[in-house]
Design a binder for these strands. Sequence first.
DNA 1: TTCAATATGTCGTTTATCCAACACATTGAA
DNA 2: TTCAATGTGTTGGATAAACGACATATTGAA
Lengths: 187, 187
Amino acid sequence: MTQSKTDPRVLRTRRLIMDSFIELSSKKEFKDITIKDITTEAMINRATFYYHFEDIYDLLEKALSEVLLVNLNEEVYKTDPINEEVFIRIFTAITNFQKSLSNRCHRGYEDTIARIIREQLEVIFYKMLVKQTTSEDKEAPKINAVILSWGIYGASVEWKRNGMTIQPEDFIKPSIPYLLSGIDLVL
Amino acid sequence: MTQSKTDPRVLRTRRLIMDSFIELSSKKEFKDITIKDITTEAMINRATFYYHFEDIYDLLEKALSEVLLVNLNEEVYKTDPINEEVFIRIFTAITNFQKSLSNRCHRGYEDTIARIIREQLEVIFYKMLVKQTTSEDKEAPKINAVILSWGIYGASVEWKRNGMTIQPEDFIKPSIPYLLSGIDLVL
DNA sequence: TTCAATATGTCGTTTATCCAACACATTGAA
DNA sequence: TTCAATGTGTTGGATAAACGACATATTGAA
């Protein structure tokens, strides 16, 4: 849109940092990862880290949202209207993510991570809702996005509590008619 | 020694360029590779290329010498005196390299590449000879290094001409006593 | 050959990264 | 507690990389 090409150095550096962070996350817990660890692994200067990120939570946030976006296959959710397939795709992305998190034991940071996931979902749902709404009212989509994000995320927590054994698709399917009917109403 | 640490940006950029060049070399012939190809693949600016290399032949030279050095396992050839194992190791490195070249069909550039390999060999032999000589005379080791580099390289050409089927080790072994006896004389 | 397209090599300016140094916070062992 | 070690976040000056523009050379098809 308004972006007039990002400096390739920026892209390169962000990639180095993100990849190093993800790499480190698979080796130790989040609370034990220092900025120095990340910048050493990425072979960039520590000051450069702060040029791109507020702090380590900012990095976590952006790394998570990127992983989510990749899982969600950006093009699809941007072009399609909200339908059954979109819900399944999003829910599956989140459960995949939950699974990968439970392997990497980010103990004590579930709340932070949960908040970030919900915020990302909210952004995604809001964009989709606004795109297919005819009304000028921007408040209703906003609140509906909040409700959807909490609802879907809650479902994924429940899926996790049930042992992560059921196929995500089968788990969410029964609720989809309800979710969709609500959306039809607000249009 | 005198090097007070190279800027990490330099190391990074050189690595990107070299890797892209090697990657491209496996896809098309040397003569068809442009600077633009390399810098595009490496995602660096074309001007940056010229900051590090004279031209594409300079890159070829440095890339080849690096590949050779890696194959030769730097530490070993620096610490050990010249003996049977060193000769075998060097010869094997060159034949490996010859094999990889013949796959990548650098037609029409064999002479350039041959020259570069010989020059690199010469440097390596010279260093080893000087280290183990007692005399102050630096001319004899220089000429002997030339002779060794041409000799060893020639042997690899012959090995190639014979179909590259014989084990490099077995191919060079018969000549090692002769090569070593000469070295003993000049010490 | 001719001419347009593409490649090479250079330059000046702008911007991202490096680095060393700093004050301050957190941690953990004595 | 105390104190040394380690981590966090910031700053200013130095330098590598990006970018656009340029002149020139090479290529390849009409």
